[in-house]
């Protein structure tokens, strides 16, 4: 296990500063990218669940394009191609923009399916009471859709955190980049990767626990102790559920 020898660990602990700095940069990027992706997700999600064909089309194109091309290619485009048009973004801006817009597409799909899961009657009832479309979305549909949306949204948030590691490839100054540059200068790959692994785990684990908890709370998992589930699986007592 020379990859994890004592002197390599010593090197690491003498140079632990950049790791914490990278940790901070990653958190900073995550925070703003998450906000951006939530805003984009709600806007495009509501658009694609709406009635306007043009808006629906725009939202479809946005979702399909960003979901079907690699994030790495998008990031490299911002980093390598835009300077040719005299647009120079800092690596952190590229991170927030690239990661935010990419995950916004995923959020948008979650918001759309969430809205579609709310029974149509809710919207019709609200229309009959004179609500406008925006009011219906804000006050009636989205709050009800929220419980279906939360578990997948936290999942996407965890993916977003992991995907900020891509910024390492454009010298983004984030956690992964610090580990990579430390490892390639000192050759202490083992300790470097273990430490960043732990750091990412610290950020992601609470979120994935939260997503599991929300799924259990709101999801439709059959509970083996629930007698009615068992009856339902034998099609007994079906009249009552109608």
């Amino acid at each position: 296990m020379s990859a994890f020898s004592i002197d390599k660990w010593e090197k690491l602990f003498h140079n632990i500063g950049p790791f914490f700095h990278g940790f901070g940069v990653t958190l900073y990027i995550v925070l703003f990218a998450l906000l951006l992706s939530l805003v984009l997700g709600v806007v495009f999600g509501v658009m694609s669940a709406g009635y306007n064909k043009v808006l629906r089309g725009i939202s479809r194109v946005y979702v399909e394009f960003f979901q079907n091309t690699p994030l790495l290619v998008q990031i490299f485009f911002l980093y390598n191609a835009l300077p040719y048009m005299n647009i120079n973004l800092s690596a952190v801006t590229i991170g927030i923009l690239g990661v935010g817009v990419y995950h916004g597409a995923y959020m948008s799909e979650v918001v759309r399916t969430g809205i579609e899961s709310v029974p149509k009657g809710q919207e019709e009832a609200a229309i009959s009471q004179g609500f406008t479309y925006t009011q219906i979305m804000k006050n009636i549909v989205l709050p009800q859709a929220l419980k279906n949306m939360l578990p997948p949204l936290t999942n996407i948030a965890a993916n977003l955190i992991k995907n900020t590691s891509i910024l390492a490839v454009i010298a983004g100054g984030d956690l992964m980049y610090q580990a990579d540059s430390f490892a390639s200068t000192t050759l202490a790959y083992g300790p470097a990767y273990v430490v960043v692994g732990i750091m990412y785990f610290i950020i992601c684990f609470p979120l994935s626990r939260l997503s599991g908890y929300l799924e259990e709370k709101f999801g439709e998992k059959p509970n083996p102790k629930d007698y009615s589930e068992l009856l339902a699986s034998y099609k007994i007592g079906e009249e009552e559920s109608k």
Binding site: A3, A179, Y193, Y200
Partner: peptide, 19 residues
């Protein structure tokens, strides 16, 4: 499952390629 779900894919790509 928890180990791999809570760490970035890129980390594993780099770690396995180099180590």
């Amino acid at each position: 499952i928890e180990l791999f779900r809570n760490t970035p894919n890129l980390l594993w790509v780099l770690a396995i390629r180099f180590m």
